[in-house]
Amino acid sequence: MSWVMVGLDWLGAGVIALGVGFFVAGTLGLLRFDQSINRLHALTKADTLGLGLVVFGLVLQAPGLAVGLKLIIVWTLGLVSAALVSHLIGQSLCSQRQEEP
C-alpha cells in the first residue's frame, strides 16, 4: 500500500513539473510573440495544459476524495474563465481590425 502512495507522490511531482514547464513556455510566448492573437494562442494553450497538469499532479497526491474533487472543480472553473477571457479578447481584437481598414 505504502509503495503505491510513494509511487503516486513521485508521479504527481513529475506531472506538476511538466505543468510548470508548460507555464514557463506559455509565459515566454506571451512575452516574445509580437501579435496579440499569437500571444493569446500561447497563453491559453499553455495555461490550459499547464493548469491541467498541475491539478492532475496534485490530485495524485491528494489525501482524500474531497480534496481531489475540489481540485477538479478549480480546474474546471479555470478552464471556463480562460476560455471566456480569450473569447472576449479575440472579439475585441476582431472589432478593432474591422474598424481599421
Binding site: L77, V80, L84, H87, L88, Q91, S92, C94, S95, Q96
Partner: peptide, 19 residues
C-alpha cells in the same frame, strides 16, 4: 466600447452567477 457579439459571455455569466 465595442458591441458584444454572440451569446458566449451571456450564457457563461448566466451559468456562473449562481456559483
Amino acid at each position: 466600447v465595442y458591441p458584444l457579439q454572440g451569446q458566449v459571455l451571456k450564457t457563461a455569466v448566466k451559468a456562473l452567477l449562481p456559483l
